[in-house]
C-alpha cells in the first residue's frame, strides 16, 4: 500500500501543535522506520496514517485514496496496527486477542457467538507460534504474561488480518535485543513475502538502519530527515550497531 501525506498538521486538544506541515511518500512494500525522541510526534503520525485521528490540516492518501470517513470503512481492514500500550484485552488469552485482529473480516454472527471460521483459528495459532509464545499462553489471560510477551501478542493481532499496511508504534520497546531482532526479522520476512508496507516507530537508530528501507526522523512535530536508510547518519552516541 502506497502512502502519501501532504501539509499534514495535528493539534492537541489544548491547541499545542503535535505535527506541523508533514509531507511524506512511502512506496508500496517499503519498510519505513520513524525515529524521534519521546514527544516528537511519532505516535501522532501513526494515528493519522491509520485514520485513528483526523488531521487539523492536510491529508493522507493510501493507494491514491484520500483517508476520510467515506473511505475509512474500506481501508481499515487493510491496515494492521500495533498500539504503543498494546491495547490488549487483559482478561482474555492470546488466542482471543490475536483473532480480534481479523474482527472486520469475520462474519458478524461468528464473531458474536465465538464460533470463528477455521481459517481464522488456524492463522491465530500460526501467528502465536511464529511469535515464539508457548501453547499455555493461548488461553491464559494476557495480564499474566510479561510485557515482552504481551507486545508479541499485539504484533500477532496486527498481522492477523493480512494487512497491506502495518503501522507499528514502538513494537520492540519492551523486548530485549535478541527478542527484538526475532520480531523485526519476522516483520521483515512478512514485508518481503507479502509485499505489505511497514511503518514502524522505533527508538533504536541501529535497528532502523538494519531493517528499514526508508527512515523518517521527527523532532518537535517536524520532519528533520527523510530518505534512504543507508543515507541516515545518527547523531553521535545514538544507538549501537545492530
Amino acid at each position: 500500500m502506497q502512502i502519501e501525506a501532504a501539509d499534514l498538521s495535528l493539534n492537541h486538544p489544548d491547541g499545542t501543535p503535535a505535527l506541523r506541515d508533514i509531507g511524506l511518500r512511502i512506496a508500496s512494500g517499503q519498510f519505513c522506520a520513524v525515529l524521534g525522541m519521546s514527544g516528537a510526534g511519532k505516535t501522532s503520525l501513526l494515528h493519522l496514517l491509520g485514520g485513528l485521528r483526523t488531521p487539523s490540516a492536510g491529508m493522507v492518501r493510501l493507494d491514491g485514496r484520500e483517508l476520510c470517513d467515506a473511505t475509512l470503512a474500506d481501508l481499515r481492514p487493510r491496515i494492521g496496527q500495533v498500539h504503543q500500550a498494546f491495547a490488549l484485552v487483559r482478561q482474555s488469552g492470546s488466542a482471543a486477542n490475536i483473532i480480534a485482529g481479523a474482527a472486520g473480516q469475520i462474519p458478524c454472527w461468528r464473531a458474536l457467538t465465538g464460533l470463528y471460521p477455521a481459517w481464522a483459528r488456524q492463522r491465530a495459532v500460526d501467528l502465536h507460534v511464529a511469535m515464539g509464545l508457548d501453547a499455555a499462553a493461548l488461553t491464559r489471560p494476557v495480564s499474566t504474561l510479561s510485557g515482552g510477551q504481551q507486545q508479541r501478542v499485539a504484533i500477532a493481532r496486527a498481522m492477523m488480518g493480512r494487512p497491506d499496511l502495518l503501522l507499528a508504534d514502538e513494537p520492540v520497546a519492551s523486548l530485549d535485543r535478541e527478542t527484538a531482532r526475532t520480531v523485526l526479522d519476522f516483520l521483515k520476512t512478512q514485508q518481503r513475502e507479502t509485499g505489505m508496507t511497514v511503518v514502524c516507530a522505533l527508538h533504536q537508530p541501529d535497528f532502523a538502519r538494519a531493517y528499514a528501507d526508508q527512515i523518517i526522523v521527527l523532532d518537535s512535530g517536524r520532519v528533520t530527515f527523510a530518505g534512504a536508510a543507508a543515507a541516515y547518519r545518527p547523531a553521535a552516541g545514538q544507538g549501537a550497531a545492530a
Binding site: G50, G51, L52, A73, R76, P77, I79, Q81, H83, A87, L88, V89, A96, A100, G101, A102, A103, G104, Q105, I106, C108, A111, L112, R157, G161
Partner: peptide, 18 residues
C-alpha cells in the same frame, strides 16, 4: 482494546463482544 478492534473495521457490536 475497543478502539483497536474498531480500527480493524469491525462494527460496534462485534467490537463490544470481542
Amino acid at each position: 482494546p475497543l478502539q483497536a478492534v474498531q480500527a480493524t473495521g469491525a462494527n460496534g457490536l462485534v467490537a463490544f463482544r470481542m
